[in-house]
Amino acid sequence: MSLLEIAGLSVQFEGRDGTVPVLDNIDLEINSGDRVALIGESGCGKTVFGMSVMRLLPSNARVTGSARYAGRDLLLADEREMQQVRGKKIAMISQNSASVLNPVLTIGDQIAESLTIHTSCRGKDLHREVIALLTSLGIERPEENMQKYPHQFSGGMRERILIAMALACNPDLIIADEPTSGLDALVKAQILELLRTVMQDRTLLLITHDLGTASALASHTAVMYAGEIVEYGPTQELFTYPLHPYTQGLIAASPSAGFHPIPGVSPAPGQVPPGCWFCPRCTCATDRCSTGHPSLKKTGTNRQVRCLRYD
């Protein structure tokens, strides 16, 4: 069953010098129980995608298309409706745990807040609930720690707190944006393990630039380049047999594969070349790649790819 169905989602930012397209015509379907990873280089629009679904983009963002959640297009919902969705139905684990927690509120308060808004849980129940959450996420001495402020925790602990906040109301979908960035290898492994456990029966949209994280957590992976999806498929298959030259490049660039970076840089938003957007950096580009823009095509049973080679 499709939980979130995104169709033709485009985002443009209005600036002083006209509008800048950031996301272009994204189609993505997340079924209940799916754990979908969205991978790509920094600046390709991954985070904007997550935020556009939550309707948390700044007021100068123009979002078109549709994002149907439980049959309701979130892009058409009003603010009050969205407040009922956020945190309760769709929760978010934002990247950079050092700045996404409010420095002047205790973490207990910050976790309890979602529960206070969305549930009728109050007083002692609320307290018990928060302690249970903290315990389930491996935070020791929850009674004491819930009185502490974010700066008193390490990066790994803060990540756990963020996960606790997201899980608080038991949402249908969790959007996790770079949950392991900025952590050292050991802690990262612990967090990944934790996420794997808690996300076992949940629906996850994982946004990351780290292929390891994606392969560890995701059932499906979508690869994003310059604001559009260039390849989609089951994670294992996609990493074993990458179809798109960009996906191949990403895999080759990962540290485990010997760190061979893709030459060149991604185009700045709004300054994409004609034809295939990856063409200038592509090792297998031919003449026709610089003229016709390829569309996302189904190949095989469950793979999609945006490359003229598979036409």
Binding site: E79, Q83, Q84, A91, M92, S94, N96, N102, L105, I117
Partner: peptide, 23 residues
Amino acid sequence: DYITTARAKGLDERAVLWRHALK
């Protein structure tokens, strides 16, 4: 970022302003 976090929890604007931003 924590303002976005607060909104992502589903807080209404007034609560974000007075509870999270003001202090």
